[in-house]
């Protein structure tokens, strides 16, 4: 099932993410990845998008109650928005520093919470915007040029 990009102006979809649900963690990014493959996005762009979206999705699973991952593909770029209801980030500047983390011991034992998530997203994205309100939630929006 190939849907040629040329005639499409955009393509978008949304997936739900549940906080703490490790059984399904990563599935939204996995589905996104399959869709990008089907519409013929280049492997390098797919890797950048899926690495960043996996990190953003895991942040919801690890730190929030629930959230959504939505994406939009235009002929120029792929934009991902991961929005959650959760604890929020008190100091985004600090959270962007490699190595900074508020993760619990349990999260660290699983190999997460090394303070690399947001920096990894930044590294793979061409544009990144984070907004957050403590006690309410966080929105991470990024895009990768095609």
């Amino acid at each position: 099932m190939r849907c040629p990009m040329a005639s499409e102006t955009s393509f978008q979809q949304e997936f739900a993410i549940e906080g703490g649900d490790f059984n399904n963690a990563g599935r939204a990014s996995s589905r996104l990845r399959n869709i990008l493959k089907q519409i013929g996005i280049s492997p390098l762009v797919i890797r950048r998008v899926s690495t960043a979206s996996y990190e953003a999705e895991m942040n919801v699973v690890l730190y929030a109650r629930r959230g959504t991952l939505s994406f939009m593909v235009t002929p120029e770029k792929i934009t991902i928005v991961v929005e959650d209801e959760g604890q929020g980030i008190a100091d985004i500047g600090l959270a962007m520093q490699e190595g900074y983390s508020t993760a619990s011991r349990e999260i660290r034992e699983m190999g997460f919470g090394a303070g690399m998530g947001l920096p990894n997203i930044k590294k793979n994205a061409d544009e990144l915007e984070i907004s957050s309100e403590v006690g309410l939630g966080t929105t991470v929006r990024f895009s990768v040029k095609i």
């Binding site: 963690a25 990563g26 990014s29 890797r47 690495t51």
Partner: peptide, 13 residues
């Protein structure tokens, strides 16, 4: 690591 998230990482990379 033996938990299931290793699979997601391997898929993404």
């Amino acid at each position: 690591q033996v938990h299931q998230n290793v699979v997601g990482v391997a898929v993404v990379r």
